[in-house]
Amino acid sequence: MSIIKRAVSITAVGAAATGAILAAGAGTASAVTPISGQGYNGVVLTHEETVVAAQLGAGNLINLAYGDNWMVDLPANSVWNTGTGWTPVTGQQFLEEAASHPRGNVGLAVTDPAVHGKPFFAMSGGW
């Protein structure tokens, strides 16, 4: 019984944190691009939205909600890309690095772990 409650509460916290991340990056003149597919829903932020999300510390919510239980896809030239399939990057470091590049942006998605293995996926690029 407690396992089910814990899973439900983790999912609720994760959904709330993801919503906060997405809202933080949205800004007033939002151009957030929604994405969805089999087992995932999320958004791609513009560079400007990525900068705002980083400035607000929204990446900390990724770790608050998911700890280390999330996936990230980093460009080959990312300072956090170890080339080993594992990275020590935190959610905030992930956002800050993308924001530091002139065209850097991020995509964020809540995923079905049964389909994708983890409950959250983030990717960065544009540089």
Rank of each mutant, 00 (worst) to 15 (best):
N60V: 03
M1H: 12
T90F: 02
A122N: 04
A12R: 07
W86E: 14
N63F: 03
D68H: 11
A76P: 00
A26R: 13
P34C: 01
I62K: 04
G57R: 06
A53Q: 08
V52W: 01
V43A: 15
T87L: 05
G37C: 07
P34T: 12
R6G: 00
Q92I: 07
N69E: 12
R6W: 01
G25C: 05
H116C: 00
F94D: 01
V8G: 00
W86T: 15
G85D: 05
T84C: 04
G91I: 06
S30G: 14
S100Y: 05
S124R: 09
R6T: 09
T28K: 14
L108S: 07
D112W: 02
M71W: 09
F121Q: 10
S30L: 04
T90V: 03
V115D: 08
A29K: 14
A17N: 08
W127T: 04
T18H: 11
T87M: 05
V79L: 03
A7M: 14
I35G: 01
N63S: 08
Y66E: 01
A99V: 06
A76K: 13
S9A: 12
S2R: 12
G27M: 06
I10W: 02
V51M: 09
V115H: 04
A54I: 05
E97Q: 10
P102E: 14
P75G: 07
G59W: 09
A26T: 14
S124Q: 12
R103E: 14
Y40K: 08
M123Q: 11
A16E: 08
A76F: 06
